[in-house]
Every structure is written in C-alpha cells, then in structure tokens.
C-alpha cells in the first residue's frame, strides 16, 4: 500500500514475517514495514475476528498489535525493524502468557 520514495538513503534488511523471509528498509517501524510489504493487516481482533491494520502510527490507537520476537500484543508502530526480527500477525487473543 506504501512505497519508498526513490530519493531516500535507507538500507535494506531481512526480517521474518509469519515464518517467511522478507526484505524491508532499515530504520523504519514494524508497522511501516507491514504497509511497505502490502501486508497491511497486522491482526484479527479478539472480539469479532475483524482484520485491523496500523491506523495512527504514533502509539495511540493500539491497532497495529503484533507478536514481535515472541512477545505478543506489541505496538508495531513503536518498534523499529532489526535484521532477523521475527514478526507474526495475531489471530484473536494472545496465548496465555507464555511470552518472554
């Protein structure tokens, strides 16, 4: 849904999205990376299962919750991508606290 402006100085790195390797610009947030990947929806709500994606990008709306490096319900807009990061979409409520 979003693309890089050609006039940029970002380097690229590889992360894992739902166990698949993908390449995204370094220095951007996980939520931004999802939009860059055309993978907008970050989760399905625990209430009705409706799909949601990043909305405010500034940590206010809590729509972009994802499991990042094993820790569920993190605001993807507040976490910067790092090489090898494991990112997963969330379906429904998180598991019972097995997280790190």
């Amino acid at each position: 849904m979003f693309k890089q402006l050609s006039d940029n100085k970002a380097e690229m790195l590889t992360i894992e999205l739902d166990a698949e390797s993908v390449t995204v610009p370094a220095g951007i947030s996980v939520a931004a990376a999802m939009l860059y990947l055309d993978a907008a929806a970050t989760r399905q709500t625990p209430v009705s299962g409706s799909p949601r994606a990043a909305f405010c990008m500034m940590g206010v709306c809590f729509e972009c919750l994802m499991e990042i490096d094993g820790s569920p319900n993190r605001r993807a807009c507040q976490v910067v991508v790092t090489a090898g990061m494991r990112v997963r979409r969330q379906l429904g409520a998180r598991d019972n606290g097995q997280a790190s």
């Binding site: 979003f2 860059y36 500034m58 807009c77």
Partner: peptide, 13 residues
C-alpha cells in the same frame, strides 16, 4: 497524521 509520520520517519508514500 499517520501518512505524514510514514513520510517523515520511513520515507514511505
């Protein structure tokens, strides 16, 4: 605002 943040912080449009 989200669109602008993507532009400022990620150079995404």
């Amino acid at each position: 605002g989200a669109g602008q943040i993507l532009l400022k912080s990620a150079a995404l449009v």
